[in-house]
Design a protein around this nucleic acid. Structure first.
Lengths: 194, 194
DNA sequence: TGCTCCATGTAACACGTTACATGATTGC
DNA sequence: GCAATCATGTAACGTGTTACATGGAGCA
């Protein structure tokens, strides 16, 4: 149940509506913690029931049924309590590695293009992170503790993407040893028969 | 639903009972895909109903009610079909980064010890992976395509752990700038009042 | 009028986790 | 006999995903 705590953090930074939170999650926290709007609404409901947050029916304009949520002292206390807890490591868990292993067992399946595609996607993300870094954390500026932490979090993303890119390069090189036949899975499948 | 496919791969490598699969998942595939025995039994039931695998009631000895599962042609076909699919990237999703961000918002919470603890855990895993690498993939040996792929998968784990270790070192250095007061969360909490 | 975006929600389902239950075999 | 381990399962729950529904606001 740490989506609740991610939301608390986000609401402390700035009180918002559920919709805004969902959109904001696409940036900042969303880089390392995904949530759909349904999850967020469900969680906001629970948090309000628990007394961690409260909602005002309509803060600025009279349009729609927009609600703005803000954190109550109990919510801040809960966040503080939770942040001090120790949590298990997030383990590496990647579906593509299962596919690779399957490929090892039942002959070459022509994963080359998918490998390239994934490498390109990681490269896109890395570029995006670097752009954010250049804009928000220019070299030379020291920054407050808060900014240093935000920078650290961004660096985790950079490190993660760069690591995958390096690995995909290695994988492409290692699988290229199979030669051009790697692109024709059907032939190999027929070979195995069964 | 890719636990099913991980199990198919594992069963193709060697037909086993559910219990053996659960244990085997602690090694090999388990390094990047976790599953409890309950999940595995549930999934094996579904897969048998789908005609992907079959079970023999008692293969070797007459002990217990052990069942041995093996992959049927339909299961192999399904695995091949699935392996060729393209899947979205696994995104970075780490609870601790949420805690860090919370720490940035509501003052220093003394995350230093937890940071050290997590770095040490990653270092343990890295050491374990390196030991496996030294044992199973000695330098100089070329190996078959299958072995190269297994090595690649292991390298993904190594890369992942090494990346986190580097990041934690950076995080420890960046947060050490706060000085020794970082170890006393209570004082800072009181400061904020509210 | 119809289209798109803003904003909130329900319902059903898939997946993973935790707790608990059961019985068989092995070793002291 | 008793404990530990092997081996399989049920039940309940928490979280995440997908599909669908609703209605207001702004604009062509």
């Amino acid at each position: 149940m740490s989506l609740a705590h991610a939301l608390l953090t986000s609401l402390l930074e700035q009180p918002s509506s559920g919709y805004q939170l969902a959109r904001r999650f696409d940036k900042s926290i969303g880089h390392f913690w995904r949530a759909t709007h349904q999850q967020i609404y469900r969680e906001l409901g629970r948090m309000e029931k628990a007394g961690w947050i409260r909602s005002e029916p309509d803060p600025d304009a009279g349009r729609g049924r927009k609600r703005s949520y803000s954190v109550l002292p109990a919510g801040e206390a809960e966040l503080m309590r939770w942040a001090g807890e120790s949590a298990p490591l997030t383990e590496l868990c990647d579906e593509f590695l299962v596919r690779l292993r399957a490929d090892a067992v039942i002959g070459p399946l022509g994963l080359g293009p998918e490998l390239e595609r994934r490498r390109a996607l990681h490269a896109d993300k890395l570029r995006a992170y670097h752009a954010i870094e250049a804009r928000d954390f220019p070299p030379g500026a020291e920054g407050s503790r808060q900014r240093r932490i935000h920078h650290l979090i961004l660096k985790a993303g950079i490190q993660y993407e760069a690591g995958w890119i390096a690995w995909y390069d290695e994988a492409l090189a290692a699988l290229a040893l199979d030669g051009p036949g790697e692109g024709k899975p059907q032939a190999r499948c027929a070979d195995r028969g069964r």
